[in-house]
Design a protein around this nucleic acid. Structure first.
Lengths: 218, 218
DNA sequence: CACTTCCGATAGTGGGACTATCTATCATGG
DNA sequence: CCATGATAGATAGTCCCACTATCGGAAGTG
């Protein structure tokens, strides 16, 4: 197909497709002449991936490019792809200072040990977790930090399900995309589910020991 | 204190503080004359909250203003504040089409019933969850949707911990801020913990049935 | 052969989050 | 008491990002 058809099938305007081509998010089509190129359904799938990363995952174009590049690297083993997915954590700008970060890193490594997780100290996830932990500390949310293990247990259950899904999936063509998407959409899903469950627990808590409010948030 | 001191204590440049004042993120200081105003540590706390919402939570200034407005509303009961925290879910732009969304909404309500959650159908969390679910479906990640209950269970455990923290906290001055921050930083924390746990499970899985790779993602 | 579509390049747009400047005050220390 | 410097408020400018518009030349299409 040509770019016009790709545009109408995907719902992405032609100039935007050109922009993604320029930015290296979308691989170029197969050239048939000086000003003609053919695209196939791989381009369509890729385009959908891009939109999901940008719209639902909230990634920037630059980060999306990096994620996609990892996806396209020759050795796309599952483990490697999961490594690429790690990149998608980055939404915590540097917030806490260096001392706090260092303390927090030690604390995360402690947590890792307690949970029996096999993770090396220099993993980017450790840094990401430490960053958030530092922010929590610095803002005085100590109770939160005290319940870190509770949250870690939940995260462990989630990751177990994640990996179970990966394990069951045959190493098909779209597997790498599925892993990335599962992580990014999975994050959004978990946030939504958490709010949902909060509404329930909130209603439960406050209809017991406070004035019964009929309105569970709308 | 005056704005200069507020700036140096918070690390936020003076023009930016003025900008936040203009945008209604920060309440005006107590005027002492035509061109002088005094700020106190409430302003400092608020400023820290703002930066956390923007930097760590990734909220836009507009959304942050809404959240803060809810925080400042006269009846700042815990349940109400949690309602405001719901606002912070919004990062999933409209991605799936209307039909998919409708189906997904029904599916979410089913889930709510299965989990025994007390949530009304018109809660914003339901819509948010449905949006993500629709996106997952539309992208062909059906296995993911099939494990929805697993994720919901984890979310329930998380929310239970969340509410337990709220319950234990005396209704102090900073409680509302803590709830909001706990949600927003908590999201970031859980994403980070999930990645951390994934690294572990990934290592575990692939050192068993594949070529042993020494490198758990860096 | 008229007409549409395409490619590639370049330039422009609009929104968001600041950032700079300017004027008219006011504060303060010598 | 006055020079120096900070401040409030207003307005305008900047920078980045994600597009979007236009254009020239070339190729497909009925």
């Amino acid at each position: 197909m040509r770019v016009g058809e790709l545009s109408s099938l995907s719902g992405v305007p032609t100039p935007t497709i050109k922009y993604y081509l320029r930015e290296g998010l979308l691989p170029p089509g197969e050239r048939t002449s000086r000003n003609q190129a053919h695209y196939d359904d791989r381009h369509l799938r890729r385009l959908r991936l891009i939109r999901a990363l940008l719209d639902v995952g909230g990634l920037s174009v630059a980060v999306a490019r990096d994620v996609i590049a990892a996806l396209d690297s020759p050795d796309t083993g599952t483990h490697k792809v999961l490594g690429a997915a790690q990149q998608t954590v980055i939404r915590t700008a540097a917030y806490c200072d260096d001392d706090a970060r260092e303390d927090a890193t030690a604390e995360v490594l402690d947590l890792v040990r307690r949970q029996g997780w096999k993770v090396t100290a220099d993993s980017p996830s450790v840094a990401a977790t430490a960053e958030v932990l530092g922010a929590l500390r610095q803002l005085g949310l100590h109770e939160f930090v005290d319940r870190l293990d509770d949250y870690a247990r939940a995260a462990d259950a989630i990751a177990a399900t994640d990996l179970d899904l990966v394990r069951r999936r045959p190493d098909a063509d779209g597997m790498a995309e599925a892993v990335i998407l599962g992580n990014i959409l999975g994050d959004a899903l978990l946030v939504a589910l958490r709010r949902l469950a909060q509404v329930h627990h909130s209603a439960e808590l406050f209809t017991d020991d406070r004035a019964p409010q009929a309105d569970p948030h709308g």
